[in-house]
Design a binder for these strands. Structure first.
Lengths: 110, 110
DNA sequence: TTTATACATCGTAATATTGCAATATAGTTT
DNA sequence: AAACTATATTGCAATATTACGATGTATAAA
């Protein structure tokens, strides 16, 4: 159906999935990596850097912004985007909790 | 178009995105969390636990298996799935590298 | 005030994902 | 062999995502 049955899952499961979803596109990974290098960027810069149309970049930026992983500040005509430190840390912690909770020695079958 | 322009991006970017994609659904997070608790599971157990149809669970298991995050061993009639330790560690490292490479003090605009 | 620049939004086409019933496959039991 | 159990696969409908041209909006420069 293309529609996820969110009500079957816990809030944490839906939350984790939504953070993963925003990272689930190479363009958005590229935008984030660009921000990690340069700390700040705007739409036009990314259009030149990534090779996608302006409307497409704008859409990816909106998705990143909608989950709070980046934030934008209007600077005259352009908008400066940068990583949201608190949210970054929060997502990092959630993912760490998931990945650290695995103990390979527990499994006998593999 | 619904089609990602993978050729515009680096191998790492595409790889990271594909790992994120497999985590980008609450059912697959739930399956992983189930495996983290119990170490092993099979299709039928998950059908009872998650409340999705057998075919749907099977499809999610296949996606998790296709990126290598889980592995399945045939055990008579049923298949025992468990986390792939090497791949788990590998994905964990890739995500850590990404998330650890951010230094909030570098940003002046936010 | 006109023109230019930067960005967002709308509309749309192509493709991908989600979910499940129905069916196929394969081992197990009787 | 026939019936049963567990899982995979197929086919399909509903919805979501990706990409971009066209257009709207808002600030800056001329």
């Amino acid at each position: 159906m293309g529609v996820t049955k969110s009500d079957l899952f816990t809030e944490t499961q839906n939350e984790l999935a939504s953070y993963a979803k925003v990272l689930a596109h190479p363009a958005r990974i590229a935008i984030i990596q660009y921000l990690l290098r340069t700390n700040t960027c705007c739409n036009t810069t990314l259009v030149g850097d990534l090779g996608l149309a302006q409307a497409t970049i704008s859409q990816h930026l909106r998705e990143l912004k909608s989950v709070g992983i980046i934030q934008g500040t209007v600077e005259g005509v352009s908008v400066n985007y940068c990583i949201n430190p608190e949210k970054w840390h929060y997502i990092k912690e959630m993912l760490s909790e998931l990945f650290d909770s695995y103990d390979p020695t527990n499994c006998s079958t593999c």
